[in-house]
Design a binder for these strands. Sequence first.
RNA 1: GGCGCGGUAGCUCAAUUGGUUAGAGCCCCGGACUGUCGAUCCGGAGGUUGCGGGUUCGAGUCCCGUCCGCGUCGCCA
Length: 593
Amino acid sequence: MLRTHTCGQLRKSDVGTEVTLCGWVESKRDHGGAVFIDLRDRYGLTQVVVGPPEAGSELIDEAGRVASESVILIRGKVTDRLEGKVNEKLATGEIEVRSSHFEILNSCETPPFTPSQSDLPGEDLRLKYRFLDLRRGEMQRAMFLRSKIVKSMRDYFEKHDFIDVETPILGRSTPEGARDYLVPSRVHPTSFYALPQSPQLYKQILMVAGFDRYVQVAKCFRDEDLRADRQPEFTQLDVEMSFVDADDVMGLIDGLVAESAKAVLGKEISTPLPRMTYSEAMRRFGSDAPDLRFGMEIVDITSIAKKTEFRVFRGTADSGGFVRGIAVKDAASKYSRRQIDELTEYVKGDFGAKGLAWFRVEDDGTLWSPISKNFDPEHLAEIKTLLAGEPGDLLMFLADTWEVTCKGLAGLRKRLAGELGLIDKDALHCSWVTEFPMFDRDEESGRWVAMHHPFTAPLTSDLPLLEEDPQDCRAQAYDLVINGSEAGGGTIRIHDPATQSKVFDLLGIDEETAEDRFGFLLNALKYGAPPHGGIALGIDRWVMLFAGLENIREVIAFPKTQKATDLMTEAPGQVDKEQLAELQLRTVKAKKD
RNA sequence: GGCGCGGUAGCUCAAUUGGUUAGAGCCCCGGACUGUCGAUCCGGAGGUUGCGGGUUCGAGUCCCGUCCGCGUCGCCA
């Protein structure tokens, strides 16, 4: 080692020791006759003094010229700081190192930004110079937190007898689900590998192979548009178990959540985690990943709407639609007409709502609204009672299809809670949403599509519905929700061929197609497949949520931009003609519509 | 693909209704200084206002197009 100590290590007890430190020049205060340097590494900051009598004038001059963020090595004696010069902000603030040797290991060009500057530069610059950005304390903490979380997960599964098995990155494309990233095969021109969207099929086959309990920290890839909490390349903690039911899997993960939160954050989370069915979640919160850190539950007033003269409400209710709303506590004075108009535009633009109806609860307890003249006072009173409205509250309603009221109100709920500061940033609220529907209607084709994936087992009690009423058939599926974010999801899989073929039938996957796409899995299932199920946890999101951050890029060392590029490496990039020729590929320009 | 926000000095930002030579702080460069820790003091350099076009006597500012970054809807089994 070039160094004897790190920059975060030295204390008063080390005074008198001769040490060698290496690190980056975080800042420099040049007094002419003496130079103070804050030397930084991942462990901390130590003040180095280059001055007489230990340092000669040549050394002092050299130290005075050193550029910020240069890497230096210094040797010297640890000393007490002068009387009254202790820096209480620093762990090493009681001491300093008086340099007798000063060496620039690598000088730094003037950087576009420095890790210590208070005004964070724009994100594009941070991404282009990620090596500088990653020097920042915040990024360092996020990366260490990530490492600790993954370790806590690995420890937990090791303790519970899981085996870590690696599965291929080069697999085969299965057009179900997300768009695949494709990799052309040189050996088999015109054929392509696909990067895994998840190791789903492999882990099921590992169950058939008798491994019983499998875990993997798995890189997954989905060629879909990005979001604040979504990257095209992400990491899952992938788990599969044999001879289990949904309760077993959730119970295991309950333990993981509690142990991980304890080990990493020192937080106590009581288990079992609360559970809620999908239908309850949609009814009360309009979302399958409800944020339970605050209330503002959705209330259905369709039955009252039917009695009113207000055409929008009544018409919607009479034609099978829903009128649902939320009570926003103490919001009347905080939202101007202009701001409510903005909320209206929001629900219209983002969720296709036709409008936003609202009422203010007046001091005398009556409801006032631009539309209140369309309502009998009696009906207004009923509405107020149902929503438990109190003076100063705003009551907001959407009259629309079930789906639009869900999405719109869930969006409003989240936005308003954020704007009104109702969210406790320190809370880590974890819960389960269970009994997801098996199927969803594809808007365009009108066909049934699997809500999770086509190997998901229905609830035993719902088996008859597979034929009678697929709409109402529920799955043995469960999502882990942390602070209103989907942090993981899993299912019990179908292990019986009869059920599997019924599901394929429903999804319009004929025998030939099934054979072509997942033949290897179906084949394996014929050779002694145990009942099995599992879950995949989104590690990036876990870290983001544990860190209290709102963007996944802040916990990924080298993330991609919204257009899926890497600003540092400039990937994706052009390739040589020779490379394309070897793959027998040729690029063509897409026709513009 | 749709909608919205943003792009001005190396960085973070400002610039009145379209009006003089586009400013400030930090960084950087030069000088002074032995106790600073956001060092201080003196001096200095630094601009294709993302790019292209248009309107105008005059555009950082208005219009059109385009690129880039961010958010979001669609999408994400």
